[in-house]
């Protein structure tokens, strides 16, 4: 791990979101080699096991290139002037609500009164969307007891070892798990938002090569070596990130990280629920003036 700000050195430093420290890790080392070759720069790759350690190292300015989850890259943009340059093509972060196939929980209604929920980290989009799924199923949040595992591999273990009744699992982690593991899991619900995404972000030292790196990443699928590598790390290709997407996800992350809640009758509706507060009742087209 880099021990100090690498800005003075010639070696670049690259890390990825900790959920990739599992099955796809060898592919990410090869990705590092691929990027070194195309950039003509020496680059060191360092994976992390947990979100907190990875986030702290990046925020300590120890990295030049990060493939980060949406709530982390928003922080890097805001605090370090990082720039998100490429995202998975036609692929968004989704959440699976998973239980152990060994327990008789077939759907959300079967969950016990007190629900032990395994989640990698509260400051992730996966956690937020997992909560939304439970909200939509009318599960009162007062019933939830969280087991924060620091990684999605930890979520898998917590589910399979019976330490949690249900887990918020990043869909890529489920897809990347072995058939043996998947057979031991049962998906009781899933998101289909197609809204947020991981992204490659570059720090100030890589800004002069932003155009080149964006082009390298977004054209990986157009050459044989790149195609093999994409397969290794589980993507079909990468696409540029737009300023509008950054603005949109920044709004979302800011609200979540600051403790904002979605408008909800049961949570923090900004409006009184009492009917007497409403001056005007519904107007029908046939009854009112036009």
């Amino acid at each position: 791990m880099p021990t100090s700000n690498p800005a003075g050195g010639s070696t670049l430093h690259f890390t990825v979101d900790p959920n990739y420290s599992g099955k796809n890790l060898p592919g990410w080392f090869l990705m590092n080699t691929y990027l070194q070759r195309h950039l003509g720069r020496v680059m060191h790759f360092q994976p992390y096991d947990g979100f907190d350690a990875c986030r702290a190292a990046v925020l300590a300015n120890q990295y030049d290139l990060v493939y980060a989850n949406p709530f982390d890259w928003v922080q890097y943009v805001q605090k370090l002037d990082f720039v998100p340059i490429a995202k998975p093509r036609n692929h968004f972060d989704e959440v699976y609500l998973c239980t152990s196939a060994a327990v008789p929980i077939q759907n959300v209604a079967d969950l016990p009164t007190r629900i032990r929920v395994a989640s990698a980290h509260p400051a992730t989009l996966i956690h937020m969307v997992g909560l939304f799924l439970l909200d939509k199923a009318d599960i009162d949040r007062a019933r939830l007891e969280f087991v924060f595992t620091g990684s999605y591999q930890g979520v898998l273990k917590a589910i399979l070892q019976g330490q949690a009744d249900v887990g918020f699992l990043f869909d890529e982690v489920y897809a990347g798990a072995s058939g043996l593991i998947r057979d031991r899991l049962h998906i009781i619900d899933r998101s289909d938002d197609a809204f947020a995404f991981h992204a490659f972000c570059i720090g100030p030292r890589l800004l002069p090569q932003q155009a080149l790196l964006t082009q390298v990443l977004c054209q990986m699928d157009q050459e044989a070596r790149g195609q093999v590598l994409l397969q290794d790390i589980g993507f079909s290709g990468f696409a540029p990130v737009t300023d509008d997407e950054v603005a949109c996800l920044t709004m979302l992350a800011d609200e979540y990280i600051s403790g904002h809640e979605a408008i909800d009758l049961r949570a923090t509706s900004s409006l009184a629920i009492d009917d007497s507060a409403f001056v005007v009742a519904r107007e029908d087209p046939d009854s009112g003036t036009k």
Binding site: V129, C248, L252, E255
Partner: peptide, 24 residues
């Protein structure tokens, strides 16, 4: 709707979390 929101072709002021929670 989602594309309009993400690309800001539909300008939006309010809670983005709520929009995402109720995207469908």
């Amino acid at each position: 709707g989602k594309s309009a929101l993400m690309t800001r072709r539909l300008k939006f002021k309010g809670s983005m979390m709520t929009a995402m929670k109720y995207m469908t």
